[in-house]
Write a protein that binds this DNA or RNA. Structure first.
Lengths: 339, 339
DNA sequence: TTGAAAGCGATACCAT
DNA sequence: ATGGTATCGCTTTCAA
């Protein structure tokens, strides 16, 4: 392992000079700069994270976390994992600032980002798909703030990182699973949060792709529940009442899955095959009661943990992520392996 | 964040004394020791990992990795993840020593452990279930060496840590999955590595439990392939020839799964539902060809990564694991989410 | 433009 | 038994 001191000795300069070159702080004669850069490259210099971390304690970098999550069970796990990571990283001098919002509001997210711009070094955000927000994030990125989008990406934004799942694949996986465990003839009722949400639309698209080649499988109706259990309950009841042939229920988002399962139960003795996303507590319960047969798990804890790690590695250790997108696998969970 | 220096100042002693107390190196008068301990507790002292890591560079702790894995595809992923982690941790001064063996040999594992005893600070091992090995590991543990068992646990050994999967649950999950996607009547041929391997026996037990209440599901024959594809091929052929009613094949270990699937293919036009463990390259290929319908994934990469992390946190950061056993989830993978 | 020195937190070692 | 000092690798600051 090469150190700054070794490079300095070999180049006949001081450690300070090497540091200035490697961290692009300027004020070094061009020829020396070249020599040092070449030497560093030749010896494959990699800064020691422990040294960096120790020195970083003097500056105390700050990370803002913006999650519109109150009342969304899926995010409970994300947040819990992030809090654990934050505690660990605090020992290294990294501070966190939490903004847990209620619902999705573009103006609010923009306003918070404006306030933060001058105070923080990094932002982890679950962004709304909106061009105004993208513009705001671009401002922060231009100002040198490290941005990580979690669980939903914003393609329009500039250089940033994404941690989340592959929604299209999630829908496809669910569709493929349905074909394996479903009845011969499937009349499918689909419930999702909102067609305005890119992720939900993508899951629907994946699901349609998966069953496209199976004529016996048709989607009878698609309803939106705005991730609300009460709305999910009544709309699902309406749908099931209107379509006596529906024998499969698919929940493409977990916000209202409990409500819609309760609606299915209320139609007894009618029986349904029910598949959902996420293994939130209510879903585990419904699995035990044999109401929900399977769920797609999106690794919420890993998502939170990875987002925090990317920020830490960058701010404290000076290491850039090796990928732009970190995509979690869509796992199939049934009662036996749901944990 | 409290530092050793602060505690030293508050107690009116030197940093060296505080260090001796907190790391139980002795040579401190009892009263001072008490005072320092109380102060540390009161201020909730937590050592700074970066400081520890930096200081650890002077001693260069060494970790030995003992895996009997040549030719076992499952371990390729474990090893790859461990190598990546080793590279990262090398920057912090942790060295690794690799012993990749061919097959399982108690004497060889014991001999290697004997050699290592005086040279290393930690051992990560995939141990054979044998009391001689357990005794040898206990010697190392008594000598203060940090021991992590990976993918197979040794209950007889003293204080050590385990990273791996829950075999019984793996078998149960596979059985439950079979009931969901299987035919009405299932005559099951089971192939496993060896009944001498605890993990394989446990999976079998889990599988039997899962289908016990389903009379239409019976295990017709159980064969051993010693994790060898050639043996798996010929024994599976023999089994399928002898039992024309077998319509389901279950591979409880991945060592010979390719061979046994090839045997199933060779019986065309007979068709089988085939379930296996692990998503090794040959299995992914067979999934694409629609020969294997599903696999149970044991997170090999996470296993390797976690084992390395436990050792690193202990040796370099002085942090003991918060659990004794780290159990990975058994995931269900089909073609669409196999990656 | 450059070098020298101090400091981040913990530890090893040498005096006493 | 205890304190002082140097060190790990990197950054920052001050002086030249």
């Amino acid at each position: 392992m090469v150190t700054i001191k070794q490079i300095a000795d070999l180049c006949g300069v001081s450690r300070g000079t090497v540091d200035r070159v490697l961290n692009k702080r300027g004020n070094v004669k061009a020829e020396k700069r070249e020599l040092i850069l070449q030497m560093a490259k030749k010896l494959n210099y990699k800064p020691n994270p422990a040294g960096k971390a120790l020195a970083a304690r003097k500056v105390n970098p700050v990370t803002a976390i913006i999650l519109p999550s109150t009342g969304i069970a899926f995010f409970d796990d994300v947040i819990d994992a992030m809090e654990k990571a934050a505690k660990k990283y605090e020992d290294y001098g990294m501070r966190t600032q939490w903004h847990i919002l209620q619902g999705y509001n573009v103006e609010e997210q923009c306003r918070i980002l404006d306030e933060l711009k001058s105070q923080v070094n990094a932002v982890i955000i679950n962004p709304i798909n909106d061009s105004r927000l993208a513009a705001k994030l671009n401002e922060l990125i231009a100002a040198g703030i490290f941005v990580v989008a979690i669980n939903n990406d914003l393609e329009q934004a500039g250089t940033h990182y994404y941690v989340g799942s592959d929604y299209v694949n999630g829908g496809r996986t669910m569709g493929a699973l349905l074909k394996m465990i479903g009845p011969e003839q499937a009349h499918i009722g689909v419930i999702l949060g909102s067609l305005k949400m890119l992720g939900h639309r993508q899951r629907l698209q994946g699901l349609k792709t998966a069953i496209a080649a199976t004529p016996a499988y048709t989607i009878t109706e698609i309803i939106e529940d705005n991730d609300d259990n009460i709305a999910a309950f009544s709309h699902t009841r309406d749908m099931l009442t209107a379509h006596e042939d529906i024998n499969v229920l698919i929940n493409l988002s977990s916000g209202g899955s409990y409500g819609s399962c309760r609606a299915a139960l209320s139609m007894a003795p009618r029986k349904f095959l029910i598949l959902v996303f996420d293994t939130i507590p209510t879903t585990k319960d419904l699995m035990e009661k044999n109401v929900v047969q399977a769920a797609i798990y999106q690794h919420p804890r890993q998502q939170g943990q990875k987002a925090m790690q990317l920020v830490f590695d960058y701010l404290v250790n000076g290491i850039l992520p090796d990928k732009e997108k970190y995509i979690m696998n869509n796992e199939i969970r049934i009662l036996e392996n749901v944990q």
